[in-house]
Design a protein around this nucleic acid. Structure first.
Lengths: 333, 333
DNA sequence: AGCTAAAATGTAATCCATTACATTTTAGCT
DNA sequence: AGCTAAAATGTAATGGATTACATTTTAGCT
């Protein structure tokens, strides 16, 4: 494999000139440029990227840390990230944590060791201090989990108001006994969605009943199981807000298995708008997150940091949208 | 940031010794090792990985080329790859092609430039010659698309016999007018699944009718549309083999929309066993691909190549499994 | 032609770990 | 003690692009 020196010799110039032809062609006279280009062609020269990375201490690679790529929402976010990254000449490294904070910390090491130019955290269970610390020192974007009080670049949705909107939709349809199946409450995101539920009820003078709040774990099965608890109640709820679509589907399945109907007997609203929620029967009424857009914006925000631009807006909150389909039985908004 | 020379000075040894302590500790006397380790500790030294990569011409990174990460089957394969890669100290770079061969070629460049140590292609539209060529020169694994006649390391399933099995299942249930919705026939995978369908019918002395074969594009919508064509036939098929689960679901939806029932009026069998096929109603009878396992095995195969081991078996064909659920209306095997 | 500023090019240091080869130290033996 | 083989350590070259700084060339002007 030919190196830069070979090219320089053949073209009868210095390596500096060859380098300039590659990096910054306008800085080289037309005539020399052509000469160098010919030499490159003739030797079939390709710059050694590893040498460049080493010299420049940059890798044109960013790391996306994700709890599990098999989870429905992440591939879309990653697709958005990848799209922008590609346009800007960056590569995307995948970091599965398998929910293990240990793993997450190991990815931070990669950032410290400059193996990557930046990092996007799609949700996290890391210590706030740690996040603040590395975000201070390296390009980092937090996506999806907005952590109040943290001054870290973030792209998120407003989980509280979105949940409120979902519940308000049920209220508007006349439901006043509304149950909620939450996500794991050790995560802020889950607590926020619960908070939105509470706010909506309170604003409508409906008392919060703790029997109407069940904690799930975002799986279809947990939605099924928690719904069964609701149905076993003396006075079951007439509507359910599930903190994500998988649980909503599980809940609906439980209703069906009791020979009852959705939305006639129980209305269900979900959250996420995963691909399948449209195909599911009844088609799920749900809160749509702009997943791809979130990915894109995260990458944009990261790029700005990498370039060293000062960020006017560090925290982006994107709009969600209530998608009305069939699981709540309403045609109007 | 301290470098190796700093450590060497502090520990009063040469950089060679420091390097050995890191790479090959047994080669260093206990006493010196401790001394060096202390110096490393004291200076908070971390080796410059980029320098190492450069020097060694290896990056401990592999590239996974995927048409679109948003497609249902790929995240699972990637998860399998990632698992094994992690265990072996490799990182996974994501290469979305967005179905664009141009993009795929650009990823091959990364391989050539030694930006990655190896590459796993999850399906591809690349020229056979190109694949053979780079597989000759670099560690490469082809996953999912088994290309006959190509002597390239491959992990795949037997699409032909799996499809045959799916159709035989329908035959066993007494169907003799069986339609097929294929994938895009410019892909070998799709043609193989069609071939299996043909073989099953022929083996049972049933003539192939071209009206009973419709080409879809793997989307839910195409399944829906092609099914409608079948239903418009004078003598519609009583059973359908869809080349993937999404199309199977679309087909079922079309049947339902005509106020007919699955499996009573039309039996449907799919392919892939995506997560959702279990939740879908009726739960899909389908061919399960061992996606995670395929990912794992691909990575193992790649690792062997990277290590330079000779491959006893270059081509792995993993078993699929017919998962009988409700969409064909059978309880027996 | 002669001068100057700007443009183009060259020189050589730099980034830092790795490793082939050379040298020194150690251990085991008579 | 003296010898040898083995173990441990050191020396210094190497990988290849980048770039600050120095030098040369060019263009534009009087």
């Amino acid at each position: 494999m030919a190196n830069m020196t070979d090219v320089a010799k053949l073209a009868n110039v210095s390596t500096a000139t060859v380098s300039r032809v590659i990096q910054n062609p306008e800085a080289v006279k037309e005539k020399t440029r052509v000469k160098v280009l010919q030499a490159i062609e003739e030797l079939n020269y390709q710059p050694n990227i590893l040498a460049r990375y080493f010299r420049r201490t940059e890798t044109k690679t960013i790391l996306v840390v994700v709890p599990s790529i098999m989870n429905n929402v992440f591939p879309q976010m990653i697709a958005g990230i990848d799209l922008v990254a590609n346009q800007s000449g960056y590569k995307v490294l995948l970091g599965n944590t398998y929910q293990d904070p240990e793993k997450a910390y190991s990815y931070i090491e990669e950032l410290k060791q400059k193996q990557v130019d930046g990092m996007i955290l799609l949700t996290t269970r890391l210590d706030n201090d740690v996040i603040t610390d590395i975000a201070d020192r390296y390009p980092v974007v937090l996506t999806s989990d907005f952590i109040e009080g943290l001054n870290v670049p973030t792209v998120a949705i407003d989980n509280i108001s979105s949940s409120r909107e979902a519940v308000e939709h049920l209220l508007r349809l006349g439901h006043c006994r509304i149950g909620m199946i939450t996500g794991p409450l050790n995560s802020l995101l889950s607590r926020d969605r619960l908070k939105g539920y509470r706010q909506a009820l309170l604003a409508n003078d409906i008392a919060i009943e703790s029997v109407l709040i069940q904690e799930g774990d975002h799986t279809y099965e947990s939605g099924y199981n928690q719904m069964n608890k609701f149905l076993a109640l003396e006075k079951p709820p007439t509507a359910i807000f599930a903190a994500n679509d998988s649980m909503a589907m599980g809940a609906i399945k439980a209703v069906k298995d009791q020979n009852m109907k959705v939305p006639e007997d129980v209305a269900v609203v979900g959250f996420d708008n995963i691909q399948f929620s449209e195909i599911f029967e009844p088609a799920l009424t749900t809160i749509a997150q702009p997943l791809i857009e979130m990915g894109k914006q995260s990458m944009e925000l990261l790029l700005k940091q990498i370039k060293g631009d000062s960020l006017k807006k560090k925290q982006l909150v994107l709009d969600t949208k209530l998608i009305i389909r069939d699981s709540c039985g309403s045609k109007q908004v």
